[in-house]
Amino acid sequence: MEMTILYRPVGPKELALIEQSEYRRFPKRLAEQPIFYPVMNEEYAIQIARDWNVPASGSGFVTKFSVLSEYLKKFRVENVGGVIHNELWVPAEELEEFNDNIVGVIEVTKSFYA
């Protein structure tokens, strides 16, 4: 089984929900969040966690996880800026199935605080 490593920058509220799942699942999106977007590299995840999550909520975290590569082929990779700004766009209604394709646990690799 080939796997792809993805990253997700999160704030403290989302991290608490991940913890409640024993680091196995990402929480459902809010009504105003139609897309779940993990990012394709740690550098971009660090930028978001440090530069967006910390000012917004006082802390930011980078999570790292593996997903079955074959499953990911159904989603588009979107570039939203510079060369490192690649995101995988997963419709919110498909997040449960996405979670089912995570292999292992979701790890916190970096933490940032105000």
Score class of each variant (00 low, 15 high):
Glu2His: 11
Met3Ser: 09
Thr4Lys: 14
Ile5Met: 12
Ile5Asp: 02
Leu6His: 01
Leu6Pro: 05
Tyr7Thr: 10
Gly11Asp: 14
Gly11Phe: 09
Pro12Gln: 03
Ala16Pro: 01
Leu17Pro: 00
Leu17Gln: 13
Ile18Met: 08
Glu19Gln: 15
Ser21Met: 04
Glu22Leu: 12
Arg25Met: 08
Arg25Leu: 07
Arg25Asn: 12
Phe26Thr: 02
Phe26Ser: 05
Pro27Phe: 00
Lys28Thr: 09
Leu30Arg: 14
Ala31Ser: 13
Glu32Asp: 15
Gln33Ser: 13
Gln33Pro: 03
Pro34Asp: 02
Pro34Phe: 10
Ile35Asp: 11
Phe36Gly: 04
Phe36Arg: 04
Tyr37Gln: 10
Tyr37Lys: 10
Tyr37Asp: 04
Pro38Asn: 09
Pro38Val: 07
Val39Tyr: 04
Asn41Tyr: 01
Asn41Leu: 05
Ala45Ile: 06
Ala45Arg: 07
Ala45Tyr: 08
Ile46Pro: 01
Gln47His: 14
Ile48Gly: 01
Arg50Gln: 15
Arg50Phe: 09
Asp51Ser: 10
Asn53Ala: 05
Asn53Lys: 11
Val54Ser: 01
Val54Gln: 00
Val54Met: 00
Ala56Thr: 12
Ser57Trp: 07
Gly58Ala: 00
Gly58Ser: 01
Ser59Glu: 09
Gly60Met: 01
Gly60Ser: 02
Gly60Pro: 03
Phe61Trp: 10
Phe61Thr: 01
Val62Gly: 07
Val62Cys: 10
Val62Ala: 08
Thr63Ile: 07
Lys64Asn: 00
Lys64Gln: 14
Ser66Phe: 06
Val67Pro: 04
Leu68Thr: 10
Ser69Gln: 10
Ser69Asp: 06
Ser69Leu: 03
Glu70Gln: 13
Lys74Gln: 15
Lys74Tyr: 02
Phe75Leu: 02
Val77Tyr: 02
Val77Pro: 06
Glu78Met: 13
Asn79Ile: 06
Asn79Ala: 04
Val80Ala: 10
Gly81Glu: 05
Gly81Leu: 04
Gly82Asp: 07
Gly82Tyr: 01
Gly82Cys: 06
Ile84Cys: 08
Ile84Phe: 12
His85Asp: 15
Asn86Glu: 15
Glu87Tyr: 10
Glu87Val: 14
Trp89Cys: 12
Trp89Phe: 11
Trp89Thr: 11
Val90Cys: 01
Val90Met: 04
Glu93Gly: 14
Leu95Lys: 03
Glu96Lys: 02
Glu97Gly: 11
Asn99Lys: 05
Asn99Asp: 04
Ile102Cys: 05
Val103Tyr: 10
Gly104Asp: 06
Val105Gln: 13
Val105Glu: 15
Ile106Ser: 05
Ile106Leu: 03
Glu107Ala: 07
Glu107Ser: 11
Glu107Arg: 06
Val108Trp: 11
Val108Asp: 03
Val108Ile: 10
Lys110Thr: 02
Phe112Thr: 00
Tyr113Asp: 01
Tyr113Arg: 06
Ala114Ser: 15
